[in-house]
Design a protein around this nucleic acid. Structure first.
Lengths: 137, 137
DNA sequence: TGTATTTTAGTAAACGATTACCAAAAGTAG
DNA sequence: CTACTTTTGGTAATCGTTTACTAAAATACA
């Protein structure tokens, strides 16, 4: 089935896992096995995603028994945009949905719809921090 | 650079080429070389895309010198949605942006934004036929 | 008839995302 | 110290989608 929205498994793991970790409270640590169970995703893939979030300073980690991951900042300070860009790279709103320099038409055939879609998405994830998901456990 | 909109090269070729063909008037034929020049895309890839559109009854074709492609229906009768689905398959608006059956959360973390984005796109391409692009040559 | 043009159809290559695996490092607990 | 748990980081394999290429078929025209 065709999909117009390009949300990768990796980004999905990052979003869901970060919310789950945030919901464990300030010092609760969550390990990969727990996340794998909760999100029904591969342990291996989760590991890789978590590593990026640690490197970018959004998560801390402890090895060994009872180790795991925990938020490295206040939930208010971590937006979904932070998480997305940590995994996927910078999300820019460009005129051409294909990022092409040349276009055969004077006016883009999509007229602005794709720009608006990207902007909608970007605004949403920029305006939602992890704190937003704490009450609705 | 990260992209949230999944518009393939193939779909882009289909959209642009169909509009260019429509703009050539009722019986004008357009060949692959012309399309390749206009759209700055690969001849080979354009060929493949055109083949699908012919099979699905949106284009006719003639081989040989002065051959090429032409609309098989009135421009009013061909929507961008027709073209998109001919290339990509059926575009459905699903709740989960990942089309997953199970979700760790009661309420989707995107709340409806991704659904809305897909609906916006689908509405736009459904409401725009090739006729829409004829005046603004 | 013969040559050039053009689509067609099948196959091959390239690419990116995902998944899998493993050895090493770090920490915990007995 | 020893055994166990867990993250880390690197590499390799797999998979599906997209893109590229080529030979064959069809057509036109001289």
């Amino acid at each position: 089935m065709a999909k117009i929205i390009n949300l990768t498994e990796a980004a999905s793991i990052a979003f869901h896992s970060m919310i789950i970790i945030a919901q464990q409270g300030h010092k609760g640590q969550v390990n990969v096995n727990f996340l794998a169970e909760k999100t029904s995703s591969s342990k291996f893939h989760i590991s890789k995603v978590m590593q990026k979030l640690v490197k970018d300073g959004f998560l801390g980690s402890h090895r060994g028994p009872a180790g795991g991951f925990f938020l490295a900042k206040e939930p208010e300070k971590i937006t979904l945009l932070n998480i997305y860009e940590s995994i996927e790279g910078k999300l820019e709103v460009t005129k051409c949905p294909l990022n092409r320099p040349a276009c055969p038409f004077k006016v883009c055939l999509f007229d602005g719809v794709t720009v608006k879609m990207t902007r909608d998405f970007r605004d949403f994830i920029r305006n939602h921090s992890l704190a937003h998901y704490l009450e609705k456990k």
